[in-house]
Design a protein around this nucleic acid. Structure first.
Lengths: 225, 225
DNA sequence: TACTCTTTGTGTTAATCTGACGCAAAGATA
DNA sequence: TATCTTTGCGTCAGATTAACACAAAGAGTA
């Protein structure tokens, strides 16, 4: 199919804010550019749309081929259209964010090791293009979303403990939440289920293992921290 | 500037969900198509991007030339990219929504009268293209936004009464809200100011006239109804 | 002028929710 | 068995909310 419109259209791309949570750290995946523009600067991974691709297809392609990730939570954020956002010419980018559990993927393998890296969100370098504002928008969206939708389980293992979930929320929202009040609110929301099992191996009392409730009655809730 | 990317890019368009509030009715502006595809069907107003235009420029152009509107509240919603969403060929559309006060614009003037019309949101025809889902998404966003950001004043006159604001919220959210509790919450949010004047002419007690507080300390709040 | 009807502005109160915190059980170590 | 830390469960005062009562304002009417 050919475009039916009269003038030469802008290039279309996606850019990805890939969040990973590991060891009480929320991180973002960045790429070190090897060519101009923004040579040697860190940027978000992205790619131009290929024929007949939908945005999510392009995102999956990037995640798969550049980063070796499969089956990732993905959400469209916003489309960036400033005419000069790419020095090479007019390009429109549809920003997305992804949530991955770094434990499940082999990221720093092979040739990638040098130019792909996780950065703690509190310690980011200045990014190329307009990627700083893409990141800010993604972080804002994630912070907002986690208070009314169970996206946390995308970042954790299938089984997790209450303290782990608690730390995730504190880390993402960058606030401290009373442990006991957090437990009460989360349990009232009914979006996690106690499996009856316990996490073994720790020195002190073994915490209960929970899993996410996949048959939520309501598909949204509101928790105010 | 020419695209620097290799393949022929999809066409790029914007589509607009224009909300208007009048006489206790929330309405959307629709266009009756005169050509195929979707001839004689109602659709959202929209247009293809022209050279160097940003999305908002294109939106303003549509609002100005097709609908005679200036200076309208506008927000980007979501980009729609299904390959077959336009039978004429691959086209990507960035949906926006706009809030206007119908009293301020002369809409049904001249040649437009036949093919442009307001529809109550509860009484919409089936729309062409994928515009039904665009509308649904816009309504959802508006409902969410109005609970944490003062967008209501875009739909009302500069001066308005408490009962008018109350009705606007009930209409948009499609719920009933206790009049007195609504007053308390809105006043606590400090996003409106009592002007001291009163609306004259009504048969009963003359309600106070309020205006929106343009120097809000906090730029967001949360009201739960 | 006094009475009625309706709308609008203000206040009250009981029920609910929230934040802050106490305490005991569980597990490992000494 | 005692100690230390973490985890699970409960309590309670203060804040917030929903439901509702009531008086003031305005216009019409007898």
């Amino acid at each position: 199919m050919k475009p039916f419109h009269s003038y030469q259209n802008p290039s279309l791309a996606v850019d990805l804010v890939v969040f990973g949570y590991s060891k009480q750290n929320l991180s973002v995946l960045l790429l070190n550019r090897k060519e101009a523009p923004f040579k040697d600067r860190w940027v978000l991974p992205g790619a131009f749309l290929q024929m007949e691709e939908r945005f999510k297809d392009t995102c999956s392609r990037v995640l798969k081929t550049k980063l070796g990730m499969d089956d990732v939570y993905l959400e469209q954020l916003y489309s960036f259209d400033e005419p000069d956002r790419d020095p090479r010419g007019r390009a429109i980018s549809v920003a997305h964010y992804a949530l991955v559990n770094p434990a499940r993927i082999a990221i720093a393998a092979g040739s990638m090791a040098n130019d792909v890296s996780w950065f703690n969100i509190n310690d980011l370098p200045a990014l190329g293009f307009d990627h700083d504002s893409m990141f800010q928008q993604a972080l804002q969206r994630l912070r907002s979303k986690i208070t009314y939708f169970p996206v946390g389980f995308e970042l954790l293992d299938d089984l997790f403990t209450m303290p782990e979930l608690h730390e995730l929320y504190e880390c993402i929202l960058d606030i401290t939440i009373d442990r006991r009040n957090f437990r009460r609110k989360i349990l009232e929301s009914e979006y996690i289920i106690n499996t009856g099992k316990k996490r073994e191996g720790s020195q002190n009392r073994h915490p209960d293992l929970y899993k996410f409730n996949k048959k939520l009655k309501k598909n949204s809730f509101q928790i105010n921290f």
